[in-house]
């Protein structure tokens, strides 16, 4: 089990790094679009996996690898906090507030959407 979680964690971390670099190369670094997109999409995916796990359609081993390992490591809270403080310290408090609120609200809404999509597939 621990190896499955570890493999998922490596994959999630490497994807976050690659996607974060690709997004900031395309959209710039004035707003943390990379982490924003990663945290919302990861919340959607984890919501779907959680619903599948609850319904018994996902084994504990797969939940460990994809949910705890992959989604847990793909999304990040520490970079989210650091980027918010960077926005505040550079005088862009409005953008910082928008970043925090939209990440949390769209993240939770994404998780709810993921759960709804998964239940629709199970049914």
């Amino acid at each position: 089990m621990i190896w499955l979680i570890g493999i998922g964690g490596i994959a999630g971390t490497v994807l976050r790094f690659g996607l974060g670099k690709a997004v900031s190369a395309r959209l710039g670094t004035a707003y943390p679009w990379g982490t924003w997109l990663i945290n919302i999409s990861g919340s959607l995916l984890l919501g779907a996996l959680y619903q599948l796990y609850l319904a018994g359609s996902l084994s504990p081993a797969l939940w460990g690898m994809l949910g705890v390992g992959f989604c847990g490591a793909y999304t990040t809270f520490s970079t989210f906090g650091y980027e918010t403080l960077q926005l505040i310290d550079s005088g862009r408090s409005g953008r910082a507030a928008l970043y925090v609120l939209s990440s949390a609200l769209l993240g939770i809404a994404g998780a709810a959407l993921g759960m709804a999509i998964a239940s629709w597939f199970i049914a």
């Binding site: 990040t76 520490s78 993240g107």
Partner: peptide, 24 residues
């Protein structure tokens, strides 16, 4: 710096578990 900051700390903390737990 990349391994400790982006790798370790990024993989240690999690946003998706936070949002799914809040929803749950």
């Amino acid at each position: 710096r990349l391994a400790i900051g982006t790798g370790f700390t990024g993989g240690f903390t999690t946003f998706s578990t936070f949002t799914v737990d809040a929803l749950r």
